[in-house]
Design a protein around this nucleic acid. Structure first.
Lengths: 208, 208
DNA sequence: TTTAAAATCACCCCAAAGGGTAATTCAACT
DNA sequence: AGTTGAATTACCCTTTGGGGTGATTTTAAA
């Protein structure tokens, strides 16, 4: 079963069926067609699809956006908006949900198919992004008081989840020394706990 | 100058002008219109746009794909294919270049505009995303004893570097409750400290 | 409606971590 | 030779965090 399952969320049955037929013509599988937000959420929890085709407007409400947010929070699957509302304010709200695609009706079959293919492929690639290792250069680039190499060594161990005692044993230095180094580093990073130090490092590694 | 500059690579002047007019109607700026691969590459190096609209077929060759690969290697900007070739083999090749969008002619103005908006926004977000966010699904995928949604909420806050007290205040629950949740979570993750929990989460998020 | 699972809270204990000051050693540079 | 700065250690004290037990309340499911 390598079939790609697609959930259709569309309150107009005729259009939904139309889309469904089109999807199946292109070797995808329609996991379900739902007409309301509630059914969509239920379907997501019980029969998670590989992709969701989302109409923004459901029965007069912009429930599609809420579903999109839910997908971002809880499910790691791509979704594509498919709507007849092409006004800028709708688009503005929609883009903040980071959809994999946005299709304006009337659409053509080739356009929908290619959007789905690319959404699926890009999403798969996105999941291969991995956590970059710490770099002393990058950390110091944004600091006025520079972290030394020794301190950086300790930071890496903290980042790995090691306790002070473990660090002391690994580096053959006293527990007091470990604490001293870490304290000095906290001042430079302007943090006051291991967890916030790690969060700070993550931030420093990302911007720029 | 916060104008978004778009480079158009399209070998049919009439269509290129048509697209250009459409783009400018939507408050973008056309940085240039080029008809060949060579001119496209030159334009990229001398006047880097914020986005590239790429026809796949240029003068009978599929040079659009080569340009796409070049953009991926050397330039960190999004690009959108816009082509009349909607056959599967073309799409297959195109999708491996991870385009931000794929528009099939004939297209409508709203569809192109929304695709551009979303391509720009998603690309901007992608650059902030070297560190993937936590996902409850991914965490639980590798656990026998599942983390609940509430526990996940606490994990996210720990991941952000928050202290127990801060978490208690943010969630309007007692400090005891926070400690209880975290303890339960530690058992599930088989860790025994915040820092090691964070390291564990990072690991869980990376391997598939 | 009954049952099970989550979520909530309290209390206790002890280990770990954070914060400050001070002192010594060592290498590098002037 | 003298100065600087990093690395090292000690000792103090306070706060936070981790671990266990038990109980109540919500919520979800059967």
């Amino acid at each position: 079963m390598n079939d790609i399952k697609i959930l259709i969320v569309e309150d107009e049955p005729i259009i939904a069926e139309d889309i469904a037929a089109l999807i199946e013509r292109n070797d995808f599988v329609v996991s379900a067609i739902v007409y309301t937000k509630e059914n969509a959420l239920h379907e997501l929890q019980t029969n998670l699809p590989d992709l969701v085709l989302l109409d923004i407007n459901l029965n007069g409400e912009m429930d599609g956006l809420l579903i999109a947010e839910k997908i971002n929070k809880q499910f790691n699957i791509p979704f594509v908006f498919i709507t007849s509302y092409s006004d800028k304010s709708t688009l503005e709200k929609a883009k903040y949900t980071e959809p994999s695609g946005y299709i304006v009706k009337p659409f053509n079959e080739a356009g929908l198919y290619s959007t789905l293919e690319i959404a699926l492929y890009n999403h798969a690639q996105k999941n291969k992004l991995k956590f970059p290792p710490l770099s002393l250069q990058k950390i110091n680039k944004n600091l006025q008081d520079l972290v030394s190499e020794r301190e950086f060594t300790l930071l890496e161990l903290i980042y790995e989840g090691k306790t002070n005692k473990q660090i002391a044993e690994m580096l053959f230095i006293s527990l007091n020394t470990v604490k001293k180094h870490i304290n000095n580093t906290y001042l430079k990073l302007e943090v006051s706990s291991r967890a916030s130090a790690i969060a700070c490092l993550r931030r420093l590694m990302t911007d720029l």
